[in-house]
Design a protein around this nucleic acid. Structure first.
Lengths: 354, 354
DNA sequence: CGCGCGTACTGTATCGATGCAGAAGGGTTC
DNA sequence: GAACCCTTCTGCATCGATACAGTACGCGCG
């Protein structure tokens, strides 16, 4: 039988409340009595107030929850996600709060909703979830504070936004490609269609994409192309199911093994862009000369491989998200944080081949 | 006022237990009544049983805790730690259990102990903590299952071990250096002394190191050197406070900027070894020819930079740890898992210069 | 008709703590 | 010596759920 507050109280001969005070409010009792209580507790093998019971009573879990796209373990393979996590971990650490990573099975929506409903947390942080995911509705139903990097119509008044201007970011990248004279363009990204397959996606308009991040980034490209007189209907879009290098290479294959091939390929993430580079090299094509490639995120590997990309502050994004969640500003206007991005031109973009 | 089970029960006109059953044991009531209850709950904005209250009653938190060396945010900068985390996340995901990352302030022991005592979890996973850290005692006091990668005298009967034979791993690396003819050797690692400074450490014997991982790895090197007739007293040891590349370079500076410089440098982690490579290159020295360098872990960057190192299965280690924690084998013998390691010889080791 | 049995639901005790009102005890003030 | 105060400690209600024993009731069976 594990000892409880009552056990200790009985041993010392004081009331349960007094023992509780010995742990949580040392100023409420004499130092002498407190020492006696703590000594008795140690002797009994009592390790302090039960965290669960304390959470119930105090109505505070002492942890924040983190929701990821796809599976939890997959998130650790994505350098951008790791940076983001690092930022949020910093914020949690500072506030002496735990960080609960929620397991979201990729294809089991019921389990995902259950995970959200069963998480003992004080708030949630959402990282790149598809808009339609039922876990987001479960989140809203719980009524806890939420910080997200994507805007949703159903966001409650409690919710906050920490992110970037996705469309402006890709618009800059698109203008860069236009200035270089590219007119035959392809865009590779995820969630263009719901089907988890690698291959061309028929997208009448970026607005049709149900995944916030991809949709906004496509919009930015569309705007840049339109401003240069390039109609969206001439742009090829390719879907990748997962954010990984091999999938990027496979998606690029769809574009490179047919004529005429695009002169520029814009990937909506660096990992995918690096896969595109692999595919180019495998075919003896030189990035930046034969085909230009742009990524997104500016992960460390992008610099190492000289990839032109859009930089976004991953760790900052995580840290600000955590801070906003742990200490929500009273003024709703302060609950929207838009971080800066910038185009980083490296070696994988160059003038369109004539 | 947030709705509770009672609110819903009163609305529908049934008892609280019945509403509870509607959520947790659907077979205990008729489908019709269950539908009515769930409908009423939705109408009231009741999102399901409160996780904290449920945890208290069920005596199960639905999460496992993760303890890291140094600060939580720092762990994300270490590729090896990230791989380990990925493994444990996989196990957690499979068991539909949350993963609670505990904030351990670097130098605030009191806060670290508090974090352990306040974590609502069903067990703990310990990753590379110094043996003397008070949080480990707090852990033991709580009496929860613990899986660790380091053995401690005070480990309880509940505890399990998942790790590698650290000494055997470095012994192989040491034999490799001996076979190449190296006799002037330096070893760089962390926690050689308690002082968090970069610089030579006076270590009469590896046994003096209080940090399990470093101690065992040093023992392996000592054994390999001794077998070749190289006495430990001729080995230079250098302490690095943190596991990062810059510190590795700074530590190497202590060795390279004096004569005679060592012909081989063994680092107890890849990150530090990569820093050593930086220091060599900054001085126009060629790794593997002028000075040999060995790392430990075999992180992805090690392969990219052709570092000779000891491979250990990071993700496996995490995954097995999680599995053992979530589903402890009845037989104590099965609670010790020793994973294989192997020496990976690449370009940074070569014959000792004459 | 009475017995046994299974289904569907209820009532109470319990999980382990904290918040708060208030009481006991000792000392100060006028 | 009564009024008052402060410190220290007590006792009760409460947080929101689940476990388990118990009850009501319909039904088949000898």
């Amino acid at each position: 039988m594990r000892p409880t507050l009552q056990t200790v109280a009985d041993t010392v001969g004081v009331s349960r409340s007094t023992v509780s005070n010995a742990y949580s409010r040392p100023d409420q009792l004499s130092a002498d009595l407190r020492d006696r209580i703590l000594a008795a507790a140690t002797a009994l093998g009592y390790a302090g107030p039960d965290p669960t019971a304390r959470s119930l009573r105090k109505r505070r879990a002492g942890a924040i929850g983190m929701l990821f796209t796809s599976s939890l373990s997959f998130a650790f393979t994505d350098p951008y996600a790791v940076q983001y996590l690092r930022g949020i971990a910093e914020a949690a650490e500072q506030a002496r709060t735990g960080l609960l990573l929620l397991p979201l099975s990729v294809d089991d929506d019921v389990a995902a909703v259950a995970a959200v409903n069963e998480a003992a947390v004080d708030g949630f942080c959402v990282y790149c979830m598809p808009d339609w995911h039922p876990a987001l509705d479960a989140l809203a139903a719980r009524g806890l504070p939420v910080v997200s990097g994507q805007r949703r119509a159903s966001d409650g008044p409690q919710s906050a936004f920490v992110g970037i201007d996705e469309a402006a970011a890709t618009r800059a990248a698109g203008e860069h490609l236009m200035a270089l004279g590219h007119r035959r363009i392809a865009v590779i990204g995820d969630y263009f269609s719901v089907a988890p397959t690698i291959g061309p996606a028929l997208l009448a308009s970026p607005a049709d994409v149900a995944y916030y991040t991809s949709r906004e980034r496509l919009r930015g490209y569309q705007a840049a192309f339109a401003a240069a007189g390039v109609d969206w209907s001439t742009v090829t879009t390719v879907n990748v199911p997962g954010n990984c290098r091999d999938d990027g290479a496979a998606a690029a294959a769809h574009l490179l093994d047919r004529a005429p091939r695009p002169t520029a390929i814009a990937a909506l993430s660096d990992i995918v862009a690096l896969g595109v580079l692999d595919a180019l090299r495998a075919r003896g094509l030189q990035p930046g000369r034969d085909v230009s490639v742009v990524g997104f995120d500016d992960i460390p590997e992008a610099a190492a491989e000289n990839l032109t990309t859009v930089h976004q502050p991953a760790a900052d994004r995580g840290r600000r998200s955590g801070e906003l969640l742990l200490d929500p500003p009273a003024d709703p206007a302060d609950r929207t944080v838009v971080l800066p991005t910038r185009l980083v031109v490296r070696a994988t973009t160059g003038p369109a081949p004539s």
